[in-house]
């Protein structure tokens, strides 16, 4: 690992400098993670007094339980839709701003601020707009399309609501990175293609999109992590996993089973599975950052 050519010779000082970070990491990160792994192999009796070692039982039970498989399915639907929506909309917006010469900055300012809105607040805002009795969207859907919107009863409506809220919050982030990616593409490439007779759409598919692939891939990983974990607040502030488990994503189920259901063994096993997932995603992200994919 890289250091400086010359270094300071002090023996104790570096440990002192690292101490706060390492202490916090050990107490609040590594220890709880180790506890989660340990608890995932244990089973608590009804009074919470005795623990018995049950091996992989907590895991096999999970994979057999229809509820967990349902949460898995819900998570996949939720993540894929949110990622596609958030990436698609922000790419279109970034392409449009990239065309602008004078007004680009003004549009950028108007588009980036939702980054600062907390996921929980984003949830509340869309919850209000889609409120079945007084919300503006159900009113429009009812009168223009004859659709009776009710996310408190209809599972698919609830899913659409959380996807919109989660994607809305992420658009500004993706937009900024797409815009930076677009602006780093040399204009000469596009000009050369234009001279060869390629129209704007052909240029987008054959030049812009391939050259944007590192940015897209990076955003893909970041957005997947976002939908898997940070959207906890969106779900909790709006549907709380309902109706009928329709929006009970994996990370929300860990919380529910642990705190409301007090099923520690199962909750810990779910935590461990999620940790495995984050580790895979982080490794992918960092391997990619090490050597950027370019054409």
């Amino acid at each position: 690992m890289q250091t400086k050519r010359t270094i300071f010779g002090n023996k104790g000082l570096p440990y002192l400098l690292l101490a706060p970070q390492i202490i916090i990491t050990c107490i609040f990160f590594l220890w709880p993670a180790a506890q989660a792994v340990r608890t995932s192999f244990l089973r608590e009796d009804a009074f919470g007094l005795n623990f018995t070692f049950v091996g992989w039982r907590n895991y096999t039970r999970l994979l057999d339980s229809p509820e967990y498989l349902n949460a898995l399915k819900v998570t996949v639907i939720f993540s894929v839709s949110t990622v596609i929506l958030a990436l698609g909309v922000s790419l279109i917006l970034a392409l449009a701003v990239d065309r602008m010469i004078r007004s680009g900055r003004a549009y950028t300012t108007l588009l980036v601020w939702p980054y600062a809105v907390a996921p929980a607040v984003a949830g509340i805002l869309w919850w209000f707009i889609f409120n079945p009795t007084i919300g503006i969207m159900p009113y429009i859907l009812e009168n223009w399309f004859g659709y009776d919107w009710n996310h408190l009863l209809t599972p698919s409506d609830a899913m659409i609501l959380v996807v919109i809220a989660a994607a809305w919050k992420q658009i500004s982030y993706n937009f900024l990175f797409f815009l930076a990616g677009l602006q780093s593409i040399p204009n000469s490439l596009r000009e050369a293609a234009a001279i060869d007779g390629a129209g704007p759409f052909k240029r987008f598919w054959t030049i812009t999109l391939p050259l944007l692939s590192p940015t897209t891939f990076f955003l893909l990983v970041v957005n997947i992590v976002y939908t898997l974990f940070e959207t906890f607040a969106v779900i909790d502030a709006t549907t709380e996993g309902g109706p009928a488990q329709a929006t009970n994503i994996l990370v929300y189920k860990v919380f529910r089973d642990g705190f409301v259901g007090l099923n520690f063994g199962s909750s810990a096993a779910q935590s461990v599975i999620l940790m495995g997932l984050v580790i895979v995603l982080t490794v992918i992200q960092f391997r990619f950052v090490e050597r950027r994919v370019t054409y």
Binding site: W31, P32, V254, F255, F264, S271, L274, M275, V278
Partner: peptide
Amino acid sequence: LMLPVEVRIVPTFQV
């Protein structure tokens, strides 16, 4: 980086 709060809620709360 690999241990967001969300995945270790219960044990962290206990700590």
